[in-house]
Design a protein around this nucleic acid. Sequence first.
DNA 1: AAGGCGTGTGGAAGCGGTTCCACACACCGA
DNA 2: TCGGTGTGTGGAACCGCTTCCACACGCCTT
Lengths: 343, 343
Amino acid sequence: MATIADVAAQAGVGAGTVSRVLNDSPRVSETTRARVLAAIEELNYRPNPLARGLSRGRCQTLGVVVPFFTHASAVERLRGVVAAVDGSRYDLVLFNVESPVHRDEHFASLTRRDRADGLLVMSLPPPQGSLERLATAGVPVVLLDSHNHGLDVPAVVTDDVEGGRLAIRHLLSLGHERIAFIGDEPDNPFGFTSSSDREAGYIRTMDEGGVEVRAGYVRHGPHVRTVSRRLTEELLARRDPPTAVFTASDVQALGVLEAVRAAGLRVPEDISVVGFDDVEVSSYAGLTTVRQPLYESGHKAATLLLEALGADGPIAPVEIELKLELVVRSTTAPPTNRKRRPA
Amino acid sequence: MATIADVAAQAGVGAGTVSRVLNDSPRVSETTRARVLAAIEELNYRPNPLARGLSRGRCQTLGVVVPFFTHASAVERLRGVVAAVDGSRYDLVLFNVESPVHRDEHFASLTRRDRADGLLVMSLPPPQGSLERLATAGVPVVLLDSHNHGLDVPAVVTDDVEGGRLAIRHLLSLGHERIAFIGDEPDNPFGFTSSSDREAGYIRTMDEGGVEVRAGYVRHGPHVRTVSRRLTEELLARRDPPTAVFTASDVQALGVLEAVRAAGLRVPEDISVVGFDDVEVSSYAGLTTVRQPLYESGHKAATLLLEALGADGPIAPVEIELKLELVVRSTTAPPTNRKRRPA
DNA sequence: AAGGCGTGTGGAAGCGGTTCCACACACCGA
DNA sequence: TCGGTGTGTGGAACCGCTTCCACACGCCTT
C-alpha cells in the first residue's frame, strides 16, 4: 500500500505538498500539481480514510438510524437516502434499532464526530436530550419522519393528521358512516406517533362530519398483516359491522382485505378499505390509499444533511412538510344500503 | 472529549496500560484494571474508532455491496445480514451498486483493510480478478447469492436450476403441458445468473418430462411488474396460450396475475402461476412459489464473514447451499381441458 | 546469595494523513 | 539598493490509539 510519503518521494516533493494537491489547495503551482498527480497515478495511491479522518476530526461517514424495516415504508425511504448520498463523498453506515436500549446506545456512541459526521434519524423520536448533546458535539442531525418539536433541527415530515382527514373525507363523501380504524398500539416503547396522528385525523374528521365513532370501532395491534386481519374479523363479527375501514398503513390494509375476502364479502361492494403509505404492492392490490412520498422524503432529508455538512455551520432548522395525496383505486365505493350484515 | 491520555492521568497509569485494559489484555493486574475502569467511567471515555483503526490497520467495519433493492428479495437478505452483524462489534456500511462502473469503483476502493475489514457481496458476481486482489489485500469476502466458481471464497447459494425443476415438476404433475416462462434479460451488465439458472431448470425439466417448450414461450424483460404483465398479455393473445406460467421471481408473478385478471381469466382455473422467492407479499397474493430462505441466507453469510474475521485467517471456503422448497398456495391447479382460449 | 525468569508497567515509536510555521525566492515600489 | 509582500514549498507537530521495548520488582532456583 503506497502512502503519502511514497508519493512525495516519487514526485520529489514534501508530504505537505501532496496533501495540498489531494485537497485541492490553491497554493500549489501547476507544474508541481502535475508531477504529484502523475506520481499518484503511477503508484495507484489512495489516501487512507482512517488517517485522514483522525487528522481532520471527521470520518466522511453518515449514520442512518433506522428502526429497521419494521415497516415496509422504511425501505422505500432508505432508497431515497441511498440515492442522495450516492453522489457525495460520504459512506453510509446503518444503525439498526430494535429496542429502546439499542436506540440509546447508538445515540450515545454517535455523539461524536469520529463516529459519523452527520446523522439521519428515521421515523424515530430521538431520546430526551440527545439532540442537544449531538448539537454540542457538532454532529448535524436531520429527522426524517419525526417532528423536531421546535428544537433546532431540520426535519422532513408529513402531516399525518391531515392524511387521516383525506382518507375519512373521501369515505364520508362516498356516504359511509360506519367507518372503523385499525392502527398501531398508541403507546409503543419508541414513541412513534404516525399511527396515532392518523387516528387523530380520523377522529376529528368524523366529528366534523357529525358522524359517530362507534364504541369498539378503533382497534390497535402490532404492525403486521396477520394482526390487522384478526382485528378485522372481529369487526366483521359485530352486529353493526363497519362499511369501511381506514388503516394506519397499507400493510395493515392488506390484512383487512384478506379478512374481508375470507369472510366471503366483496371489496368495495360490501366494504371499502383505505390504507396509508402507497408502498409498492398497493398498486398491485388496487388499494385506495393516502400516498406519502417515501422515496422523496429520504432523498430530501439526506440532501439537507449533506447541505448542513457542506455549510459546516448549522443550516436553517426548517421543518419541511411533504404533501400527502389520496390515491383512489378500487377498494372504495359508496356503501350498499344494508344496515346489517347478511344473517 | 476525553482521550486515552486523560484516562491514564486520572487513573495514575500510563497510556499503554489503559490501552491494555481496553483490549482485555491479560497483562494487567486486577487492581490497576479496576482503577482504569473507574477513570473511564468517570470521564465517560470512549476510544476514538478512527485512531484505533489507524493504529491497528483495520476499521471495525463490514462492507455490504448491494445492487440496491432492485429486487424485493435483496431487502429480506439485508435484514438477515443486519441481524447477524448486530451483535458484533462491527459497523455496517452500505455500498450501493447501480451500474457496472459503480461496482468496479467500489471493488477498487474496497481492496484495502482501511476501508472495510470484510466484504459481503450480494447477488453480484464480482468483477474479474477482484477476488484475488481482495485476498491479496487480506480482506475476507463472502459471496451471498452468487457462486464462487471454484475460487477460494465462501459463498451462500441456492440451486436455482433445481428451483426451476421444483416449479416445473409441480406443474407437470398437475397435468400442464403449455407452460411458459418469464424471466430477466439473460445478458445483463452485471452478469446475474439466477434468472437464467431458473430458466435452465425449466427447460431441462420440460425436456425430461418430454414436454415441448413452444416457440415464444420463453419471455424476458426488466424485473418489474409492469413488464411481466405486458409479456403475459402477449402470451395470452397467442392462438395457443399457456395454461401455466412460471416466473423467475414473485414480483414478476404478480404481474402475471394482474394480466390474467385483467384479461377476465381466473387463477388457477384458467391459468396456473408459480413464482420464485416467497417474498412477504406472496402469501397475501396466495401465490404458489419456490421459497428460498432469504433472511437466513443473509444471516448465514454475515455469520461466515464474522467467523472469517474472528479466525483472522482464511476459513474453509465452503459453498453453502440453502434448501429451496415449493410452497403450494392457490395459484396452481390442474389445467382445464380447453385447448384454446375462448374466442 | 546471585542469577534467572515471569509479571506489570511506562513510555516511545509508529499508523498515515493534515496543518501550521518557517523560509526561500521572485517581484514590486520607494 | 533595500525592505516589503506574496507565493510555493518542506518539514515538524499533531490527531488518539496500539504495540513493542525496556525495565523494575518479586520470587524461585541452584
